[in-house]
Design a protein around this nucleic acid. Structure first.
Length: 195
DNA sequence: CTCTCGATGCGCT
DNA sequence: GCGCATCGAGAGA
């Protein structure tokens, strides 16, 4: 099935974010496939974006955001968790889409093993939860998503009747007026949305 | 169900 | 030293 191409990611970030909904994120782990449909994302665009990790300019942490499109930007947060982004736009233009929630499709048994004592509905309904379920960590930072290596995105689908909705981004700090832009995209009423 | 609060470590000022 | 693109336990209703 179709791997999403470099050109898909080398576009304006809001378009990429919207078009990622319904696509299938695949993680290959010890020859096991773990995958899910992307049902919620957020866009982070440029150094002027008050909520973006690129706000301080190029640093070691956010370097992947400045790199070529179609690669992973994985960061460590709150001393405990990882979150996964997809780098967008041309090299040198720091922008990315945060993957916030998945609908699990393949590898449920292994996901349950990675997130013990959780009901299935809480396997991948948050940015750090899905990284736990798919065993995504710093070793996937800079990974090329345009190759079938250990992490990639391939063609998915939107079911008939599924509607795309937007809202302001969640969990971001700072000046609220600057953060009101509706840069969160999600499939309306989907059961695997984050809280 | 909702709300509050603590965990935990690293990058950056 | 501070603050963080989060989560889960525990309490209350």
């Amino acid at each position: 099935m179709g791997l999403l191409s470099r050109k898909f990611y080398a576009r304006p970030t809001l378009a990429v974010a919207r078009d990622l909904l319904g696509q299938r994120l695949v993680r290959l782990l010890d020859s096991h496939r773990l995958s899910g449909r992307i049902v919620e994302v957020e866009a982070y665009i440029g150094e002027m974006d008050q909520a973006s990790h690129a706000r301080p300019g190029l640093t070691n942490r956010n370097a992947a955001m400045y790199g070529p499109p179609g690669h992973a930007y994985v960061y460590f947060i709150y001393g405990l968790y990882y979150c996964l982004n997809v780098v967008t736009e041309a090299k040198g233009s720091p922008a990315a889409v945060l993957i916030r929630a998945l609908e699990p499709l393949e590898g449920l048994e292994m996901m349950r093993h990675h997130r013990p004592n959780r009901p299935d509905r809480e396997l991948t309904n948050g940015p750090a939860k899905l990284c736990q379920a798919l065993a995504v960590n710093k070793s996937q930072n800079h990974a090329d998503l345009c190759q079938r290596d250990t992490l990639w995105i391939q063609d998915g689908w939107l079911a008939t009747g599924e509607q795309i909705a937007t809202s302001p981004r969640v969990g971001v700090r700072g000046d609220q007026t600057a953060l009101a832009a509706p840069w969160r995209f999600y499939i309306q009423d989907h059961p695997f949305l984050s809280r």
